[in-house]
């Protein structure tokens, strides 16, 4: 992603990567603790590294349709 509007993609996408790679170094999160019955590091792996990717890409998609409307789209349904 390059160009004038690229910063917002980098900023939002960067949060997910930052959380996925950095929280494991924090003993408050990566320790023998349980959060809601599950290991706390499992939450931090599962939520920013997997579940939040769908809303993140959904936002990217809205921005893409506004910033770079695709002239040669052929639809989404199966042929």
């Amino acid at each position: 992603m390059t160009g004038r509007r690229a910063w917002k993609y980098w900023a939002l996408g960067g949060v997910t990567f930052f959380l996925s790679f950095v929280v494991v170094w924090l003993p408050q999160i990566n320790g023998p603790h349980l959060w809601l019955g599950l290991p706390s590091i499992l939450w931090w792996t599962c939520v920013p590294g997997s579940l939040l990717i769908t809303p993140l890409l959904w936002i990217f998609d809205r921005w893409q349709e506004k910033d770079n409307p695709d002239p040669d789209e052929e639809g989404e349904a199966d042929a």
């Binding site: 890409l57 998609d61 893409q64 695709d70 789209e73 989404e76």
Partner: peptide, 11 residues
């Protein structure tokens, strides 16, 4: 069938 299909898929 289109680039849009791929983008929707990855979402």
């Amino acid at each position: 069938r289109s680039a849009k299909v791929l983008r929707k898929n990855y979402i």
